[in-house]
Amino acid sequence: MGSPYTAHVTSHGGRNGFVRTSDGLFDQKVGTPNEGEAAGTNPEQLFGAAYAACFHSALKSIAKSKSIDTSNSQVTAHVTLHSEGTQYHLSVEMEVTVPSLEEARVMELAEAAHKVCPYSKATRGNVEVTLKVRAPVQK
């Protein structure tokens, strides 16, 4: 990537408003989880989308450096918003599938990706992240 990249995303109205990127390519209504999902996405879904994409790119990069095929691989971020009284915190389960690999090798790749992914680095020590390997669906 070379030089630093800065994304500019503005929220209007918090959890019951909208978010928009400076280039206008992303302009989305947001709502409160559960109650607001019919009205738009929510911050947990947005965070999960960003984290899953970044984590998946890290996994694919590591696999490529080892000449490992990651065709049809996928990463699903399960982001949970926990409430304890008036306090809130997040946890994430990263579910990784690589159809061409055995589960132990997929876990090795997931652990390596977790060490280098910028989102994993940003959440380390603040958000509980667990890694899970999902066996591919048999056809």
Results as ranks from 00 to 15, higher is better:
Glu111Pro: 09
Ala49Phe: 08
Tyr51Arg: 06
Tyr51Ser: 08
Ser100Trp: 01
Asn72Asp: 13
Arg105Glu: 15
Asn72Phe: 04
Ala53Gly: 07
Ala104Glu: 10
Leu109Ser: 10
Gly36Met: 00
Ser3Asn: 14
His114Ile: 10
Phe26Met: 15
Tyr5Leu: 15
Phe47Lys: 02
Val129Asp: 11
Lys121Trp: 02
Thr86Tyr: 02
Lys66Cys: 06
Arg15Cys: 01
Ser100His: 04
Ile68Thr: 12
Val133Thr: 09
Pro118Tyr: 03
Arg124Thr: 00
Arg105Ala: 15
Gln45Phe: 07
Ser67Ile: 02
Ala58Met: 08
Gly31Ile: 13
Ala77Glu: 09
Gly36Val: 00
Ala52Gln: 06
Ala58Gly: 14
Ser73Leu: 01
Asn126Gly: 05
Val75Tyr: 09
Lys64Asp: 15
Ile68Tyr: 02
His89Trp: 08
His56Pro: 05
Gln74Ile: 02
Ala112His: 07
His12Pro: 00
Phe18Pro: 02
Pro118Gln: 03
Ile68Met: 06
Arg124Ile: 01
Arg124Pro: 03
Leu25Arg: 12
Leu109His: 11
Ala38Arg: 09
Gly85Asn: 14
Ala135Leu: 13
His78Ile: 13
Val19Trp: 09
Thr21Glu: 01
Ser57Ile: 07
Asn16Arg: 13
Ala112Cys: 07
Glu93Leu: 11
Ala113Leu: 06
Val9Arg: 14
Arg105Phe: 01
Asp23Ile: 10
Thr10Asn: 11
Phe55Val: 01
Val92Tyr: 07
Val9His: 10
Gln45Met: 12
Asn34Ser: 09
Gln138Tyr: 02
Glu84Val: 13
Pro33Asp: 09
Gly40Phe: 00
Val98Ile: 14
Leu81Thr: 04
Val129His: 06
Gly13Tyr: 07
Phe47Pro: 00
Val129Tyr: 06
Ala53Ser: 09
Pro33Cys: 11
Asp23Pro: 02
Val98Cys: 07
Glu103Thr: 07
Asn72Met: 05
Ala113Asp: 09
Val137Lys: 15
Gln138Thr: 11
Ala38Met: 05
Lys139Arg: 08
Ala77Phe: 08
Ser120Leu: 04
Phe47Asn: 01
Val30Asp: 08
Gln45Glu: 15
His8Gly: 02
Ser73Cys: 00
Gly31Pro: 10
Gln45Trp: 09
Asp23Arg: 05
Lys115Phe: 04
Val96Met: 01
Gly14Glu: 10
Tyr5Trp: 10
